[in-house]
Amino acid sequence: MNFNIDKPNETLIEQLQHKIDFKTKPIGSLGVLEQLAVKIGSIQETLSPELKKPVIMVFAADHGIALDGVSPYPQEVTWQMVANFMAGGAAINVFGRQNNIDIKIVDAGVNYDFDKNSGVIDAKVAYGTKSYLNNAAMSNEQFELALKRGADLAEKMHNEGSNVIGFGEMGIANTSSAAVLLHLLTKVDLKECVGRGTGWDDEGLKRKYEILKSAVENYNGDKSIESIFSHFGGFEIVMIAGAMLKAAELKMIIMVDGFIITSALLAASKMNPNVLEYCIFTHKSNENGHKHMLEHLNANAILDLGMRLGEGTGAAVAYPIIESAVNFLNQMASFEDAGVSNSDKIN
């Protein structure tokens, strides 16, 4: 798929900064909030941006590599956690309700059949990927289908009035895919990319690394992003990448969560680097590889709370800060409006 992603309107940046600098505050005193306000205003091409119908889409899928022992949890935890999402009992549900964010749950490729009345959005490509220890996780056709279904879902959210979108994920063994993608797309040493995931001890972490090392050594595809992504990706990660690319094309604000979601963005950025212009990095994951992803993308995260849960929780927790950036820009008085003397000595 091709995505026509324009860069945001840079001509507005100076005007936005001027508006911010004449608020009743010392220059630069709102720090990151000022940077966020400029970014959001330039994306929306306005001096008075607004956030409409925020949504976080949680994509779930199973990974064949899980059966090779890279995770301490059995594969069925994926569908069981999806059921927990639909029951409203997961952390993402709590934070979504707290911050008035609509949470959508998507079956991208879970090894389970959900009831048609469950509320889960059915975008299933297959009942999980194949193990990439010796073969590709998915076919080229499945890869293209996952990209398209992700793009279609992002477009649907846009058509329903949302202009700010975040992504979450659920899939036992998906930290393994993220780690390999990080290694192959950035050349960071594999040992630095592989983390404890859902809670491996030292012995389990070593075993996970050895399995992934073998998978990388067995890869005989080319170095193209499409080949690497389809070989080692998960249906949920590819679908998220497609959704991100379409969201950027539609000039939506993209809230980037932690390790897995950033791996999807990393891959998406190799397909079209302009996608990065629409991204707000919400938190730094405690999963070791995430710091390398952020460094490679030259990104600074809003929060660093030691979180590594996934599900989109970092985006949900950071959303009120993003709201604060928009609200101060729109509602805070200027020196002239407030009748306050504006002095160059205020700093």
Rank of each mutant, 00 (worst) to 15 (best):
Q75G: 11
K130C: 01
T175G: 00
D201H: 02
L145V: 15
A91K: 05
T129P: 01
P72S: 02
P74N: 06
I165P: 04
K213Q: 12
T186M: 14
T175M: 00
M157A: 14
E141I: 15
I172S: 02
A91S: 14
Q98Y: 07
I165W: 04
I105W: 10
D113I: 13
R97P: 03
Q80F: 12
A87R: 15
F95A: 03
N93A: 12
E76Y: 11
K187C: 08
C193W: 01
G168A: 07
E203H: 08
V164W: 05
V94R: 06
G197V: 00
Q142E: 15
D202I: 12
L133S: 15
N99S: 09
K191I: 13
A146L: 03
A87P: 12
Q75I: 15
D113T: 14
D113F: 09
N93I: 09
E155K: 15
A137H: 14
G168L: 04
Q80C: 06
I105L: 10
A137K: 02
I101Y: 11
V125C: 02
N135K: 13
M157K: 09
A178T: 00
N111H: 12
P72Q: 10
E160M: 13
K156T: 09
Q75Y: 01
Y209E: 03
V106P: 11
I121N: 08
L212A: 00
H183E: 00
G166S: 05
V164G: 01
T175D: 00
G204W: 05
N163G: 00
Y73H: 15
I103T: 00
H158K: 10
P72C: 02
A173E: 03
E192L: 12
Q98A: 12
A178D: 03
S131C: 09
L181W: 00
V94E: 06
V82L: 10
W200Y: 08
G204M: 01
G109T: 09
I211T: 07
K208A: 01
N100T: 13
A154K: 07
N163V: 07
A108R: 06
V164P: 06
L145F: 09
T198Y: 00
A178V: 14
T186D: 11
E160N: 15
S71G: 04
D102M: 09
K156Q: 14
G195F: 01
F143W: 05
N111Y: 09
G161K: 12
G69I: 07
N135W: 07
A154G: 10
L185T: 13
N100P: 01
R207L: 13
L185H: 02
V94L: 06
L212F: 04
A90I: 05
N159E: 08
S118A: 10
K124M: 02
L205P: 03
Y132F: 11
A154T: 14
M86W: 07
E144F: 04
I172N: 01
N84H: 02
V180P: 01
K206Y: 10
I172A: 02
Q142M: 10
A179C: 09
G88I: 04
N84W: 11
